[in-house]
Measured scan of single mutants.
Amino acid sequence: MPVRRGHVAPQNTFLDTIIRKFEGQSRKFIIANARVENCAVIYCNDGFCELCGYSRAEVMQRPCTCDFLHGPRTQRRAAAQIAQALLGAEERKVEIAFYRKDGSCFLCLVDVVPVKNEDGAVIMFILNFEVVMEKDMVGSPAHDTNHRGPPTSWLAPGRAKTFRLKLPALLALTARESSVRSGGAGGAGAPGAVVVDVDLTPAAPSSESLALDEVTAMDNHVAGLGPAEERRALVGPGSPPRSAPGQLPSPRAHSLNPDASGSSCSLARTRSRESCASVRRASSADDIEAMRAGVLPPPPRHASTGAMHPLRSGLLNSTSDSDLVRYRTISKIPQITLNFVDLKGDPFLASPTSDREIIAPKIKERTHNVTEKVTQVLSLGADVLPEYKLQAPRIHRWTILHYSPFKAVWDWLILLLVIYTAVFTPYSAAFLLKETEEGPPATECGYACQPLAVVDLIVDIMFIVDILINFRTTYVNANEEVVSHPGRIAVHYFKGWFLIDMVAAIPFDLLI
C-alpha cells in the first residue's frame, strides 16, 4: 500500500533555474538572501570558489559584500557603492579590487542584480563577478574607477581610450546646418538635424578633445543650467548677453562664444560640459537660429522629431539603469545623424518603425519583477520565466494532490484497515475457520451469522477504491517536481505499489 509523501509542494524551481543557467555559462556568482541580516550568502558556485580561493563552506553565510576579499588596494568608495546597491532595488555595476585567499590582487567587475517577489519586494541578490585585470595590471588604489561605466561593446579594446569628441564640431553647429540641408533625401539625416562627426583615429590627448566618459557625465550638469543662461549661451556672438549692473557675465554663455574659444586653444572642462549641455537642449539648428531671432517656433511634425517616441515608452518600462547606459552608448555611435529632440514631445505622434532597438522591449506582467540581467542570462521568455513566489501546480481535472487534506485522511483510514487485516486475518484463519468446520452448517442466516465476513468484505472494497484513487494521485519525481499527468501517474504506480495493492485487495476469504 503506498505511503508516498512529498510535502515540499507547491515547489518553486526558480532558484534552481537560475543556478542551472548560470552554471551553463561558466559564470562566477553568488546568491544572497536579502531578508536576513547583512544579506548572507546562501549559494556560491564553483567558479566563484576558484576565483577567490575560498571553499564553499568558508563563503556560505558570510555577508555578500565580500568584505573578506578586501585588501589594501580595495577602494572604500567601491565598497560603499556595493553596500548601497544592496540597500536599493536597481541593478548596478561596480569595479573593485579584490584579494584572493593567497593574497593576489585582481580588479573585478561586480554586477549586483536584485530579484523581487510578486509584491515588488527584493528577496534575493545575485552578484556576478568578472575579472577585468590581474594584480600586475591593477593601478594605484588612489585612482577611482567606479565613477565610470563599463566599456562599450562596439569599441575595440585597444581603442576604448582613444575615443574623442571634438569640441569644434559642437561649436560649428550653425555652420554645418547648410551642408545638412543640402544633403536632402540623399543624406542619412532628416531636415533640421545636426550631424556630429566623431574622430576615432588614435591621437595624443589634446586640450581640444573630450573623453567619452566626460560626455556621459554632461547629463548630470544640465539641471544646474538655468533657462535664461541656456538661451544666452545659444544666442551666440551676435547678441551678447546682458548683465545687470554690478553683475558679471555668465561664464556659461561665454563658453560657447566662437570668438572667445578661437582665441585660446584650450577650454576648461567645466565650460566644455556646460556648452555641450546647452546645445543638447535645442532640438535642431533651426531652433538655434530661432533663439537668435527671439522667436522659438513649435517643433515640426516630421520623422526626426518622432524618433524618440518609442524611446520614451522603453525608458518607462525599463527595469534597470543598464538600459540608460545602453541608450547613452548607442546615442554616441560615430558617423550617424543625431536628432536633438526633447523627450517631452507630442504624445499624438505616431511611433516610426526603427531597425535598431535601443531599449529592451516591454516586459510582460509575469516578468515585471525580474531584472534585465536575470532575463538576459536565463534566456527565457515571458511565458517560461515565473515570478519568485509559491505557485500552485497546474493539475488535470479529477486529480488528487498527494499533500491535500483528503489524501491525508484517506491514508490514515487505509492504515487502520491494514492494521485490522494484519490482526484479524490470522485470527480468523486459526480459530474461526476451525469452529466453522466443526459446527453445523448455517446457510440460512447468511452474513448475519458471520459479522467478521462483512467487515472483511468492506475492507476489500476499500482497498479496491484505494487502488483507483492512487491512479489519480500526484507524486514527486526525482527532481522534486509534482507530477499531475494521468499517464505518468499510471506508469509510476504500475512500477511501484500496484502489484502489492492488488494482492492485498483480493478477497481470499470469499474465494475459499
Rank of each mutant, 00 (worst) to 15 (best):
P2R: 05
V3N: 14
V3R: 07
V3S: 14
R4C: 14
R4D: 13
A9V: 12
Q11D: 13
T13F: 08
L15K: 01
T17Y: 12
T17A: 12
I18Y: 07
I18T: 06
I18S: 01
I19T: 05
I19A: 04
K21I: 10
F22K: 05
S26L: 07
K28W: 01
K28F: 09
K28I: 09
K28M: 13
K28E: 01
I30P: 01
I31T: 01
A32S: 06
A34C: 06
A34F: 01
E37S: 09
E37H: 14
C44K: 01
N45T: 06
D46P: 06
D46K: 05
F48V: 01
L51N: 01
C52F: 13
G53I: 01
G53A: 01
G53F: 01
S55L: 02
S55P: 06
E58S: 04
Q61M: 09
R62Y: 09
P63C: 13
C64R: 01
T65W: 09
T65F: 05
C66M: 15
D67T: 07
D67Y: 03
D67F: 05
P72T: 04
P72Y: 01
R73G: 11
R73W: 06
R73I: 08
T74W: 01
R76F: 12
R76Q: 15
R77P: 15
R77G: 10
A80R: 13
A80D: 08
Q81E: 13
I82K: 01
Q84A: 13
L86R: 01
L87H: 15
G88I: 14
G88L: 14
G88T: 14
A89Q: 10
A89E: 14
E90T: 08
E91G: 09
R92C: 13
R92Q: 08
R92M: 13
R92L: 07
V94P: 01
V94T: 14
E95Q: 13
E95C: 07
E95T: 08
F98I: 05
F98K: 01
Y99D: 01
R100G: 01
K101H: 03
G103T: 10
S104D: 08
C105Q: 15
L107A: 14
L107G: 06
L107E: 09
V110I: 06
D111S: 09
V112I: 15
V113P: 01
P114H: 06
K116P: 12
K116N: 14
K116V: 13
K116W: 13
N117P: 07
N117Y: 15
N117L: 07
N117Q: 13
E118I: 06
E118G: 10
D119F: 09
D119G: 06
A121M: 04
V122D: 06
I123Y: 05
I123C: 10
M124L: 05
M124F: 13
F125V: 06
N128G: 15
F129G: 01
F129Y: 07
E130V: 11
V131G: 11
V131W: 07
V131I: 15
V132C: 15
E134K: 13
M137Q: 15
M137Y: 09
V138W: 05
G139L: 13
S140T: 08
A142D: 06
H143K: 11
H143I: 14
T145H: 06
N146S: 15
P150L: 08
S153W: 07
L155Q: 05
A156T: 15
P157Y: 01
P157E: 06
G158Q: 15
T162Q: 08
T162L: 15
T162F: 12
F163D: 09
R164K: 13
K166G: 11
L167H: 15
P168D: 15
A169T: 12
A169N: 15
A169M: 05
A169C: 05
A169V: 01
L170D: 14
L171G: 14
L171S: 07
A172N: 08
T174S: 14
A175M: 04
R176S: 06
E177H: 13
E177T: 07
S179Y: 05
V180A: 13
S182C: 12
G183Y: 11
G184A: 15
G186T: 07
G186D: 10
G187K: 04
A188R: 10
A188S: 06
G189D: 05
A193P: 05
V194T: 06
V196E: 01
P202D: 14
P202L: 01
P205V: 06
S207E: 08
S207Y: 13
S207R: 15
E208V: 06
S209N: 14
S209V: 13
A211K: 15
E214F: 15
V215C: 06
T216R: 12
A217L: 14
H221F: 15
V222Y: 15
G224T: 05
G224M: 05
G226T: 07
P227Q: 06
A228C: 05
E230N: 05
G236D: 15
P240Y: 15
P240I: 08
R242C: 14
A244H: 14
A244C: 08
L248G: 12
S250C: 15
P251C: 14
A253I: 08
H254S: 13
H254P: 12
L256F: 14
N257V: 14
N257Y: 11
D259K: 15
G262S: 15
S264I: 14
C265W: 15
L267W: 11
R269P: 14
T270I: 08
S272C: 07
R273E: 09
S275G: 09
C276L: 08
C276W: 05
A277C: 14
V279S: 14
V279K: 15
V279H: 12
A282V: 05
S283P: 07
S283E: 15
S283K: 03
S284G: 11
S284F: 07
A285R: 11
D287N: 14
A290G: 07
M291C: 04
R292E: 14
G294S: 14
L296K: 14
L296A: 11
L296I: 13
P298Q: 08
P299S: 09
P299F: 03
P300D: 14
R301E: 14
H302P: 05
T305M: 11
T305K: 06
A307H: 13
A307Y: 13
M308S: 12
P310K: 14
P310H: 15
R312G: 11
R312C: 14
R312N: 11
S313M: 14
S313P: 11
L315Y: 14
L315G: 12
S318Y: 10
S320N: 03
S322K: 11
D323L: 06
D323I: 03
L324H: 14
V325D: 14
Y327E: 12
R328D: 13
I330M: 14
S331C: 13
S331Y: 03
S331P: 09
I333A: 09
I333L: 12
T337Q: 12
T337K: 14
T337S: 14
T337H: 14
N339W: 01
V341R: 15
K344S: 05
K344W: 06
K344F: 06
G345E: 06
A350C: 08
S351T: 05
T353V: 14
S354W: 15
E357I: 07
E357A: 14
I358D: 15
I359T: 04
I359C: 07
A360Q: 09
P361W: 01
P361H: 09
P361T: 12
P361F: 05
K362A: 09
I363C: 07
K364D: 08
K364M: 10
R366A: 09
H368Q: 07
H368K: 10
V370Q: 05
V370D: 07
V370T: 06
T371C: 09
E372N: 14
E372F: 03
V374M: 07
T375D: 03
V377H: 04
V377A: 05
V377R: 03
L378C: 05
S379M: 14
S379R: 05
G381M: 05
G381P: 01
A382D: 11
A382N: 06
V384P: 08
V384S: 04
